[in-house]
Design a protein around this nucleic acid. Structure first.
Length: 490
RNA sequence: GGCCCCAUCGUCUAGUGGCCUAGGACACCGCCCUCUCACGGCGGAGACACGGGUUCGAGUCCCGUUGGGGCUACCA
């Protein structure tokens, strides 16, 4: 093949979390930057842990993020199939090859026996490592185990001496003593391969030239290199990227709240923001001061030499800030399209109800756009555009309603507003400015109570924007309701 | 326990022996803009884990300690 080939190989045991997404992203960037092929492979050799639909959900997330694969499930490719559960015969075949060469052997130990052995080693304060007791079984012993009906796993014969040096593209040379590595299982007794074996066979057969994966696999790499040498198969280059940690510096897990791509999507984060943010977790662009970058921007300048070797803790606040940046960049019409599902799930209006009011919705969204952080928050904060406030902000009531004269002033406001020849933002503003003047008060004395009357809140878009979007009838009616509320107050 | 990786503001990071009285971003605080909030602008507080070396000179190189993470599985 000759060409650069890179892969991302998740195991379908859950949703795609941001750590996995980030590793996939680095793979993608590296491939596109260097003109190679990006292969997606599903590592589903653990029947117990594999979760139904997980692979499908992950692929959905990849597509949503814009990380499209050149070869893999759905799209196919010359190295099909791309799902390990469909490649069993391959693993058996090469395991047999290794056994024929005397580089692998059957191990009849039961999990219980192995556990007992480890336990003993722990008590004796020795390394809890497999002893190699089945390495040189006689034919007699083998027959005995078979007669007992024992199942066997296949172990790989690891070298007893020497060193294995990983030449990592990020960490440099990392050396491991071979004697530290015990004979490990490559085929489980259920006939399925283990990770360290399947991974090598597939990377080899799929012509993978560069293995970019999370740091946690650095210690597994010497094991895999031993298999490459035993087959023999050409060695790919390795690059171990730092892991992403939860805010408490522990490994990402479910109890840390939102962290899967799907969850972020459902909370109203944009794929562009997520991709941009996670890229910066461990990678710095050449111009480190320019942080807002599209996937295309990143492809142009991505280099492994600027990937750090330090684990990163993700910070939702910065992601959220970045999401706000992306929301602000959107054309209002596009934003509305993305927002509609969130307006629906906030129970404010249905898609059907919204359809004929598209122009109105755009106007409303424009007033809120620069305040938005996530689509979910944005939709929720637009509630007052859809229905009158159910209650008034408590502090606001004290500050703006519970003062002498407020009801009277609001009354005058409604009168002025209803007399205006036409309803526009400028006309509303002009009306308020002159009323304030003739009353000899600041505009704020009118504006703040009105905002509270219209939205129930003390913050939000400019008052005249709100009035314009609400329309004259609704505006006057809400002010009227507020006047009644104030009168009851006193 | 053994082996391996990692260590700059709260977080993400710049920094590859003198340009560092350590720069940027998020968050935080103050001021400005202003009808509020937000946006935006300006300013502030805030870090080289510790201890030894090497060197004229160390955040940058070496060693140790401490701390965090990973592997040591018939998980990946």
């Amino acid at each position: 093949m000759g060409d650069l080939r890179v892969r991302f190989a998740p195991s379908p045991t859950g949703y795609l979390h941001i750590g996995g997404a980030r590793t996939a992203l680095f793979n993608y960037l590296y491939t596109k930057r260097n003109g190679g092929k990006f292969v997606l492979r599903i590592e589903d050799t653990d029947v117990e842990r594999t979760i139904e639909d997980s692979a499908e959900k992950m692929m959905e997330s990849f597509k949503w993020l814009g990380l499209n694969w050149d070869e893999g499930p759905i799209v196919g490719g010359p190295a099909s199939p791309y799902q390990q559960s469909q490649r069993q015969d391959l693993y058996s075949k090469y395991a047999q090859t290794l056994m024929d060469k005397g580089l692998a052997y059957r191990c009849y130990c039961t999990p219980e026996e192995l556990e007992a052995e480890r336990e003993q080693a722990r008590l004796a304060k020795k390394a809890p490592r497999y002893s190699g007791r089945c390495r040189n079984l006689t034919q007699e012993q083998t027959r005995e185990f078979e007669n007992e009906g024992r199942k066997y796993a296949i172990r790989f014969v690891t070298p007893d001496q020497g060193n294995t040096v990983v030449n990592d593209l990020i960490h440099g040379e990392v050396s491991f003593q071979n004697e530290e590595i015990a004979d490990f299982i490559i085929m489980k007794s259920d006939g399925l391969p283990t990770y360290n074996f399947a991974c090598v066979i597939d990377d080899w057969l799929m012509g993978i030239t560069h293995v970019l994966r999370a740091d946690e696999h650095l210690s597994n790499t010497p094991r895999q290199m031993m298999i490459y040498r035993a087959l023999p198969a050409p060695m790919p280059k390795f690059a171990h990227v730092p892991m992403i940690l939860a805010p408490d510096r522990s490994k990402l897990s479910k109890r840390h709240g939102a962290q899967t791509v799907e969850e972020f999507r459902d909370k109203g984060y944009l794929p562009e923001a997520i991709v941009n943010y996670i890229a910066l977790l461990g990678w710095t662009p050449p111009d480190a001061t320019r942080e807002i970058m599209s996937l295309e921007d990143m492809v142009e300048v991505f280099e492994l030499s600027r990937v750090s070797s330090t684990a990163a803790v993700y910070d939702v606040q910065k992601l959220t800030w970045m999401n706000g940046q992306y929301i602000r960049q959107l054309e209002p019409e596009e934003l509305v399209q993305k927002l509609i599902p969130f307006i629906e799930s906030a129970g404010l209006a249905t898609r059907e109800e919204l359809a004929p009011r598209k122009d109105w919705l755009i106007q409303a969204v424009i007033t809120m756009q620069e305040r938005a952080r996530t689509l979910e928050d944005l939709a929720e904060s637009m509630e007052f555009y859809f229905r009158p406030p159910g209650s008034y902000d408590e502090k606001g009531v004290k500050k703006h309603f519970a003062k002498p004269n407020v009801a009277g002033l609001l009354q005058k406001c409604t009168e002025v507003l209803s007399r205006m020849p036409d309803w526009s933002l400028e006309a509303c503003e002009h009306a308020y400015t002159s009323l304030a003047q003739s009353e000899g008060i600041g505009r704020g004395k009118l504006i703040h109570p009105t905002r509270l009357a219209l939205s129930g809140k003390t913050f939000g878009p400019g008052l005249f924007d709100i009035m314009y979007v609400l329309g004259r009838d609704e505006t006057i009616s809400r002010i009227g309701a507020a006047i009644q509320f104030i009168n009851k107050l006193l």
